[in-house]
């Protein structure tokens, strides 16, 4: 093969990659209808996440605020500033924020007033805002927000440092390995706590231990030698078994396929 051909081939290869990148992948940078800044809301103005995403502790979906809810504040907050007024510029974390000339997401300059005008436009037309969703879990996995909030997870654990980013990107790819790593940590912690209360666990074989830490459950007869299935409920080990259940009931679900995929 001649040198030229290699050049052509490589050239086309790279050119295609570049074209595809600009044509499709770059699109991943979502172009929202309004340059909404999480940093200004959650950071500068210190609004709690649940003020707008109000269903997060009630429902599987966090909820996106309605236009009406936005207007609840923005009827009064219109960011009208005289461009010559130096007082309009304020400081946040050492950064000068100018409502009339704000570098949004490090890529474009916006004027707050104009963005709020877009919002009032939607409100006047009573038109829903169509945002671009780029923070999603694949459709074949069911991710409910509610139990995670109930457990006490912070929003920032998955969504990143929202207070300091205009347009937060997923801090990690929201894929199964990432979900599982967290669940495994919890399983491990549970197992250690469990082992403290049930010293019998230390006499288990390594394989059984691994099965247990992995699945969060173990047949009662393995843990308690005197546990007899035939005797069932009447047996003294039954109480111990119940104890096992109480400690472990969260755990069994953590790595069960059906928890997220059904």
């Amino acid at each position: 093969m001649s040198k030229k051909l290699i050049f052509i081939t490589l050239g086309t290869f790279i050119a295609t990659l570049v074209i595809v990148y600009f044509a499709f992948i770059k699109e991943y940078e979502p172009h929202q209808p309004i340059a909404f800044s999480h940093k200004i809301h959650a950071g500068v103005n210190n609004i709690p996440c649940t003020y707008c995403h109000s269903y997060v502790a009630k429902s599987s979906q966090p909820g996106i605020p309605s236009v009406q809810q936005c207007m609840g504040c923005h009827t009064y907050v219109n960011a009208k500033y005289d461009s010559n007024d130096p007082k309009r510029i304020y400081e946040y974390n050492g950064e000068q924020i100018d409502p009339n000339n704000y570098l949004y997401d490090g890529r474009k300059r916006i004027v707050f007033e104009n963005e709020i005008k877009k919002l009032t436009g939607y409100w006047d037309r009573k038109e829903p805002i169509v945002w671009v969703n780029y923070h999603y879990v694949a459709q074949h996995a069911k991710f409910p927000h509610k139990p995670h909030i109930r457990y006490g997870l912070e929003c920032t654990t998955c969504h990143g440092d929202v207070q300091n980013i205009d347009q937060p990107r997923p801090i990690r790819k929201m894929q199964m390995g990432w979900c599982i790593s967290c669940h495994e940590e919890k399983l491990d912690a549970n197992f250690k706590k469990f082992a403290k209360e049930h010293p019998a666990i230390n006499e288990l074989s390594d394989v059984d231990k691994r099965i247990m830490s992995y699945t969060g459950r173990i047949p009662a007869d393995k843990l308690y030698k005197n546990y007899d299935h035939e005797l069932g409920d009447k047996h003294s080990a039954h109480d111990e078994k119940l104890k096992l259940i109480n400690i472990n009931q969260e755990v069994a679900w953590l790595k069960d396929c059906g928890t997220c995929h059904y």
Binding site: I64, E127, P128, V130
Partner: peptide, 27 residues
Amino acid sequence: SAIGGAAVISSGCTPEPLDKLVSYAVP
């Protein structure tokens, strides 16, 4: 084939099509 290869590689990296999130105007 080089173009094809590049297309295959890049298509693997292309994110899933973006969904829309539609807010209520008045909930």
